[in-house]
Computed example of a mutant assay.
Amino acid sequence: MLPRSTDPFPDAVAAFVSLVWLGMLLGVSFLATPVKFQAPSLELTVALEVGRVTFDIFSRIEWGLAALLVIATFFPRAPRAEMVFTAVAVLVVSIQAFWLLPVLDMRVEAVIAGAPLPPSMHHGAHAALEAVKAVALVAVGLVALFRLGWRDRPENVAGGL
Rank of each mutant, 00 (worst) to 15 (best):
3 P>H: 06
4 R>T: 13
7 D>S: 14
7 D>E: 07
7 D>N: 15
8 P>G: 04
9 F>C: 00
13 V>S: 05
13 V>C: 05
15 A>V: 07
16 F>Q: 05
19 L>S: 14
20 V>T: 11
21 W>M: 02
22 L>C: 03
23 G>K: 03
23 G>I: 10
23 G>T: 09
25 L>D: 06
25 L>A: 11
27 G>V: 10
27 G>P: 04
28 V>F: 12
29 S>T: 07
30 F>Q: 10
31 L>E: 00
32 A>K: 05
33 T>V: 14
36 K>V: 03
39 A>N: 06
40 P>R: 05
41 S>Q: 02
41 S>T: 15
42 L>C: 00
45 T>D: 13
46 V>H: 04
48 L>K: 02
49 E>M: 15
50 V>L: 14
53 V>E: 15
54 T>I: 11
54 T>G: 09
60 R>Q: 14
63 W>P: 01
64 G>Q: 05
69 L>C: 07
73 T>F: 05
73 T>N: 10
75 F>K: 01
75 F>R: 04
76 P>R: 04
77 R>W: 07
78 A>L: 05
78 A>F: 10
78 A>M: 13
79 P>K: 09
81 A>D: 01
81 A>Y: 00
81 A>G: 04
84 V>I: 15
87 A>Q: 08
88 V>T: 11
88 V>W: 10
90 V>N: 06
93 V>I: 13
93 V>T: 13
101 L>D: 12
102 P>G: 14
104 L>E: 11
106 M>T: 12
106 M>L: 12
108 V>Q: 00
108 V>W: 04
109 E>Q: 11
112 I>Y: 00
113 A>R: 09
113 A>P: 06
114 G>M: 06
114 G>L: 10
115 A>R: 14
116 P>W: 02
118 P>Y: 04
121 M>R: 12
121 M>C: 02
121 M>V: 13
121 M>A: 15
122 H>V: 08
122 H>I: 04
124 G>F: 07
126 H>F: 14
130 E>S: 14
131 A>C: 10
132 V>G: 04
133 K>M: 14
134 A>M: 08
134 A>V: 03
135 V>F: 14
136 A>P: 06
137 L>T: 03
140 V>K: 03
141 G>Q: 01
145 L>I: 02
146 F>L: 08
146 F>T: 07
153 R>W: 12
158 A>D: 03
159 G>H: 01
159 G>V: 12
